[in-house]
Each structure stands twice: as structure tokens, then as C-alpha cells.
Design a protein around this nucleic acid. Sequence first.
DNA 1: TTTATTTTTAACGTATACATTATAATCTGA
DNA 2: TCAGATTATAATGTATACGTTAAAAATAAA
Lengths: 228, 228
Amino acid sequence: MLHKNDKSRLSLVDKAYVEIRRRILEDNWQPGYQALEEAIARELDMSRTPVREALIRLEREGLVEIMPRRGMRVVAISSTDMCDIYEVVTVLESEAAARLARLRPDKKFLAPLNASVEAMDKALEKDNLKAWAKADEAFHANLLKLCGNARLAQMGMSVQDRIKRARLATLNERPVPYRSNDDHRALIEAIMEGDVEAARRIHTQHKQNAMQMITTILKQREDDDLDE
Amino acid sequence: MLHKNDKSRLSLVDKAYVEIRRRILEDNWQPGYQALEEAIARELDMSRTPVREALIRLEREGLVEIMPRRGMRVVAISSTDMCDIYEVVTVLESEAAARLARLRPDKKFLAPLNASVEAMDKALEKDNLKAWAKADEAFHANLLKLCGNARLAQMGMSVQDRIKRARLATLNERPVPYRSNDDHRALIEAIMEGDVEAARRIHTQHKQNAMQMITTILKQREDDDLDE
DNA sequence: TTTATTTTTAACGTATACATTATAATCTGA
DNA sequence: TCAGATTATAATGTATACGTTAAAAATAAA
């Protein structure tokens, strides 16, 4: 487990972890997908042992569940679970936003946030929702990274992973997200003005809107599945 | 990894996980303690494999770090890290408190919370700080469990584990915690009245006081260590 | 045909073997 | 004696072997 080393000397556990995680987060392995250790090991051209170890990590992160004799299964996206998770991420990110506002940072410090919003604007000009989602994700990651609390950032990021798939899966069914871009710009404004409560309120509202849209779509799908 | 089975059929991984975790949380293995896989395996009377797997879980939970050729090391308690973690747990628990207040639960539903406060009172009458800490911990766990958001509870609990050692390590250096008991009673009161903002405020203030006391003691110790 | 029982198969958890390599110990030269 | 080089050791990561047992398949009975 040389998991602290550079990329060229990644252990097989790390390689398995990165690859499996990639397949899940990029939806190559969809929610509910199952695979046995041995099959994964064959696919990744390694023995079972590093696959096992990678799966333990991923299980702890909530991306897979390990079911004896069924192998691992990619955790399903459920609307009720997503509601719960969204609430957590809303609290964490809004605290990060408030914290950042308290810091009263200068424009230079907030450059990564502005860059993300610009990339989001550009993506919408080109009708490229995928690129928009990527830039949006970067905005949220930057918000957490800049907030000055390492644990808050780490935890916020790990919860992000859990909602990432739901965000992508619903991307084409949501209205064009102009409002997201506006929300982020307003947030940056509030942060620069050191307006802690506004920052918290703007971001909370933003996440709640997103949650509403996403979980409504998910619920609809679940209802459709029940009708079949 | 029959980690979902009953206790009598715990896998060796589960056994190792439970035992190592117990030793850390009960301070038998103190912050900074190092041990090699092989040594742990010998101590637990099993081969290295289940020990490795247990350590991966514990690493993901932030209790240990795995360092090649040095084995695992129990994560140190640092005042700055504790500040960060306390901020996270404050946000999570305060949200749980607010959520609970929103629910406007009846007295019966809140029985576990009242029971914990009573146990805390009883422990202080007997000058038993250890028992007090245990009841206090139960109070916080119950608060999370009752809040109605499974993810919030799960995450709050996992962050609890990270501060548990710092709480215990500083227990005898803090003033007798009458105020904690009062705070918890006030919180229950606010919850029963459905006063969301009071609940949030009371609990936030409570956690911030605790954080202040604990991290001050930790910082003092770190400064003392530097003087040696 | 269906259900129950028995047998077989293979997935998993665990132990062990082995190659790699980081680190400790030892040796050599100034 | 000290610093650098070399050698030895052992910790780790990985592969593989093996025993256990859950699940699948086959067989028998109703």
C-alpha cells in the first residue's frame, strides 16, 4: 500500500481503487452493478488481494457494498438517501461559505472560485452540460478547499462523491442551470463583502434548490419503476 | 468478511477491527503508538491478512495511519486538528438539534435524551467523571440518532469517534461539567417547544465552549512538550 | 409437476509463500 | 572517530493455496 507515493509507483491496491472508483463515478458501473472479486481481478490484471483491499476502502466511502458470494455491488441511488446526503452536504458547504466570508479574503485568494464560475458560463454558452457539471463540481471543491478547515474540506469532499452520480444522472432532465451560475456569483460577492449570514443563506438556498430538483427526478423514476 | 453477521460468527477481520478500535478509543493504544502488522497479528492470534483489512477500515475512519515499514500508527491528537474536527461536529450536531426541534417531538420520543441527562446528573452526584463522560456521549449519540436523517447521524457518529479521545484525555483538567448538564436540559426544552433557532444556538454554544476548553488544554500540553 | 433433499461447485476468508525494497547494521576509508 | 558505501534484514505488497460454506445444480419423493 504505497498510497502516498507518486503516480508512477502506485501500488496495485491504489490502481484498483482509482480504476474502480472511476468506473463508478463516471457511471461505467451503474448503481446496482455487481461483480465478483475474481472477475474484477481478471479485468484489472491482478490477483484478488489488491482488489479486496481497494473494495474495503470504497465500501468505507459508501460507493460500494460488499456482499459475500455476490461480490461488490455499486450502491444504488435512492431519493430518500439522497435527501439525507444533500442535507449533510448543504450544512457542510454552507459552513464553509460562512467561514470563508468570515476570512474576508481578497479577490486573488478567491480566483479559483471565479475561474470555476467563468468555466461554468462558458460551458453554458456552448450548450455543454457535461462541461458545466465539471466546472460546477470544481466550484464546490474550491469552496471547501479555500475555507481554511481541513477536516471540513475533507468531509465535504467525501460527501460530494456520494451525490456526484445523482447529479450526473439527472443533469439532462433539469432546467438549464443559469441560476446556479448566478447563485455562485452572488455567493462570491457576499464572501468578498464579509457578509457571513448572506453567504450562508445564499449557499443554503442554492443547495436546497438543487436537492429539490434532483430528488424529485429520482423519486419520479422510482415511481415509474414501481409501475412496471 | 461476514461483517453483517451476529457476534458469535464475527470474521477475524471484524474481530481485529473491533479490538484495535477498542484499544484506541479506550486509550490502551495512545496517540502516536506504532505497531507492525505482524506484531498485531501475533497479539490477536491470527495471520496478517485480517489485520491488514481491519487497518484499512480504521485508516479510512481516521483512527490510524498506515505507514509502510513502520506499521500503523494511532493518529495523534493535535489541537489544531481538534479545532477543525470540533467545528465539523458542531455544525452536524447543531443541525441535528435544529432538525429535531422542527419535528416537535413529544416527551416520550425524547426519553433517551432525558435518560442521558439524568445519568449525567447522577454521575456528577457521585463525583464519577468517567460515568459522566459516558452518559454525555450517549446524549450526543441519541441526539444524532433521533434527528431523523440517517446520513447526518452516521456522519456525526463517525466524527464523534475522532474527538472521543481528546475528550477523555482532558476530562480531569476541565471544570466539573455542571454547565453541560444545564445546556442539555435547555436544549431538550427548546426542542420540545419547537424552537429551531434556540435549539441550534444552545447547542452550538455548548459545543463551542467544550471546544474552547479542550483545545486550550491540548495547546497547553503541546507548548509544554516544546519546552522540554 | 412441484417440493424436498442431497450433492457439487465456487466464492470467500484466511494462511502462507515469495519477491521487492526500505531501513538497519556493518564495513571501509579518510 | 566520522561519513559514506555496502550488505543484511525484515516489513510489505502481492500471489497463491486451502478449508469452509453458501448457493447452485442434481436427484429423489410426493
